[in-house]
């Protein structure tokens, strides 16, 4: 018998022994395996959607909404000028303008008073 055949026979014997070990698994272990199998099936059936999936849903929604708003803003942009919302941002960014808007009521009253006096 050559080396290859010897190895083949060895592997066949090993396989037989491994099968025997598998078949003769003790009752306690077999019972535990049955239990964990049922637990695994229960866990799979009652699987909650993963946290990541729940977390990704609003993130994806916000991202989509942002993309739509940006698209609409670009579409409505007047030729040669900034989109209205960007101009508003420019106004809001200037501190002195904000003070002006804060005192708008006063200026309105002043204008009316001047008319009455005049």
């Amino acid at each position: 018998m050559n080396e290859q055949e010897k190895e083949k026979r060895f592997i066949a014997n090993v396989k037989k022994a491994l099968d025997l070990g598998e078949e003769n698994l003790d009752a306690g272990t077999q019972s535990k395996l049955t239990r964990i199998r049922h637990q695994a099936l229960d866990a799979g059936e009652h699987k909650e959607p993963s946290i990541r999936r729940w977390f990704m849903l609003p993130v994806a929604g916000v991202a989509t909404a942002c993309a739509i708003i940006l698209g609409v803003a670009i579409y409505l942009k007047p030729p040669g000028g900034l989109p209205p919302n960007l101009e508003d941002l420019d106004l809001l960014a200037a501190e002195e303008n904000l003070e002006f808007y804060d005192g708008l009521e006063f200026y309105a009253w002043l204008a009316e008073a001047e008319i009455d006096v005049g």
Binding site: L33, I36, R37, Q39, A40, L41, A43, G44, E45, K47
Partner: peptide, 10 residues
């Protein structure tokens, strides 16, 4: 084995 089963089922 249990962990493998759960992952497989899920």
């Amino acid at each position: 084995v249990q962990d493998a089963m759960i992952r497989w089922v899920s």
